[in-house]
Amino acid sequence: MKIFACTSCDYHSVTSKYTCPKCQQGKLQEKEVSTKGTVYSFTDIHVAPAEFAHIAPYTVALIELDEASVKVTARMDSEVAIGDAVDLKGLEEGAFIYTKAN
């Protein structure tokens, strides 16, 4: 998975920024890390906006990557609990779809 790391401090993010929001000096550089991670928290969305109503209820989780201090918001393919080991299943219309790791 592509993440962004600051050239002058320890800031990491899954989203790019013009300058580092932490030290406000460094630039963010692309870095490749494993997609494996752990569920930091989650919710089950029962009431969805019009564009997602057809798949409700669905689970959205905040996943902490194993190889970098980065969190990623993803849709899960099943229910999860905090601490579950997960991995990327694929991309769907720009969304990360994660699944429980074996």
Partner: peptide, 18 residues
């Protein structure tokens, strides 16, 4: 990617609450 995953306002605060 967060919006495309289907996160909503109450969804954000649900994740936070858990």
């Amino acid at each position: 990617n967060e919006k495309r995953a289907g996160l909503t306002f109450p969804g954000f605060f649900g994740v936070l609450a858990n």
